[in-house]
Amino acid sequence: MVNKNLRPPTLNVTPEEYKKMTAQISPRPTLIKNVVLAFLIGGLICSIGQIFINFYIIYGGLPKLAASTAGTATLIVIGATLTGIGIYDDIVKVGGAGAIIPVTGFANSMVSPALEYKKEGYVFGIGAKLFSIAGPVLVYGISSSIFVGLIYYLLDLLR
């Protein structure tokens, strides 16, 4: 932080004033455009997922739940591949959260660091970096589901 003992002449602007100046000048995101694009891209990715699910039900003869799982897995494969050929980051640039939140975005968050650190080897490069974002997602997802299970188990005992 600011060293109050600096010899003069320091700027005659306080950090608080400067913070206000910064907020005033720094351009904000184009919120409405971003929200509309997130809706369209997010909706589009989910509809593509729905088409796969319908396909697996009608032509694959899968039950609904299995078809849903298969649809998710298909989108993961697509997201990973689009990241590999270098297209997915362009989709996110346009679609923002609409492309980050679907599982295709999750696949992108796994593949991109692994690709990037490939030169650092198969263990510390690809192996470790595959989980640099997927790791936290799994840690919080799995841990919270175990808590949910525990609470459910305890409530079950009380009944």
Binding site: D89, V92, A99, I100, N108, V111, S112, E116
Partner: peptide, 17 residues
Amino acid sequence: ERQYRLPTEQGNQRAMY
């Protein structure tokens, strides 16, 4: 980018500033 921010292939919307 990879050292200071995110891997280059990772999707992200950069701040306007």
